[in-house]
């Protein structure tokens, strides 16, 4: 079973993403900011990360940049954000994201991207 880490400071968003991913059969773990995410990602190997950009303490960019430096297997990361600055998408790829989605994410859209990232397109 694939293991996904959902990182967002809003509880509602985490529950929403968790619901969609669990419905599709993924196992979900949550973190509510970049530092907690980093701690969890160092503890457990994940197959996919779903990361918000604006978070307190350590934002999504900071988290990914730091994670990409760690000597561990690197999972793909989907970054999600509100409309935000035009530079966000570029910064997301620079920080090590594999794809970038705008909030609110629709269930079918999220699952399509998750499967793509996990190499399960035919599922």
């Amino acid at each position: 079973m694939k293991h996904v880490l959902v990182v967002d400071d809003a509880a509602t968003v985490r529950m929403y993403h968790r619901g969609i991913l669990e419905f599709a059969g993924y196992m979900v773990e949550e973190a509510l900011n970049g530092i907690e995410a980093l701690e969890k990602a160092l503890e457990t190997p994940f197959d996919l990360l779903l990361v918000d950009i604006n978070m307190p303490r350590l934002d999504g960019f900071g988290f990914l940049k730091e994670l990409r430096r760690q000597p561990i297997p690197q999972p793909p990361a989907i970054m999600v954000s509100t409309e935000a600055a035009a530079g966000d998408e570029k910064s997301a790829y620079r920080a090590g994201a594999s794809c970038y989605l705008l909030k609110p994410v629709r269930p079918a859209q999220l699952l399509a991207h998750a499967r793509l990232m996990l190499g399960e397109e035919n599922k």
Binding site: I53, N54, M55, P56, R57, D59, G60, F61, G62, A85, D88, S91
Partner: peptide
């Protein structure tokens, strides 16, 4: 982004 989040906090 980092400055924004620090300011919010």
């Amino acid at each position: 982004v980092a400055l924004r989040n620090e300011a919010i906090e």
